[in-house]
Design a protein around this nucleic acid. Sequence first.
DNA 1: AGGCAGGTGGCCA
DNA 2: TGGCCACCTGCC
Length: 301
Amino acid sequence: MSGKGWCPLEGEELISETALAETLVGGQAFRWFWREGEGAWLGIWERNAVYLRRDEGGVLSFRSPTGTDADSVAAYLARGRSRAWARKLPLAADPVLHRLAAKWSGLSLLAQPLEETLLAFLCSSNKRIRQIRDMLERLASAFGEPIQGTGLRALPSWERLATVSESSLRACALGYRAPNVLATARRLAADPEWANRLASLPYREARDWLQQLPGVGAKVADCVLLFGVGRGEAFPVDTWIAKALAGHYPEIARWPREQLATFARIHFGPGAGLAQQWFFAEARGQSTEALKILSSDSRSG
DNA sequence: AGGCAGGTGGCCA
DNA sequence: TGGCCACCTGCC
């Protein structure tokens, strides 16, 4: 079934259409677009553009106009890491988790670039997925470097963002997030080692450091640590997750956010973040079709 | 036509 | 600590 240029991702577990959609556009990444004409997803990260499609048997294939290789795609999808996290969850002790594990077995937590993850979640407050996507596309077209031969643009670096004006950020419809993005950009640009340092810090210290950035609170910090640094113990608690936890665990229903996050890290352990994504997918209850419509690329195909 | 959204930070008890 | 409110903008 591999047409010209399509390369199967070998040695991977089969994945359902729903699990794939949840993985790509369920709220952890924002630059995956369903291309109806291709029957494939187009994803953009750093200088990579990758088309990803699933055959009827559940095998993934990709092709890349940027020459991104199979190892890089597999590293980004990070499916093995999610399987390892799943094995560490207390599935036997927690029937709720056991059921979600079966239902969402193919769902993976992507290994996304840290800088892009921070930018995305700095934009995310008080916004729905669709609006976050739109903000990022405006930032990419206004300030991002072209990705050669694709007509696409990368997200701007923090160094680049440090040089722009607040009004030009507001022109990207960032609203009150604009000054936060700018102040964060200036702080990071003045501290070139920040990413390495963050990666070397223990979870709690890394979280505290992130929270010192303007516009970064507990939830955003956990999203950055989970999606952009690969800290499986991070458990972002937003309104959806708070509701989902309340529904599944009535005894903690009225706990404040911060306590829910602590409870989850203790109860779920090193793979807590994966459980969070299962709860999120479960709570949304959106169809695959709805996810595709949400993320269909309205630009010229 | 207005309320509300996957939050944060400042302020008050 | 925990609870309450303003904040930009776009979409339902």
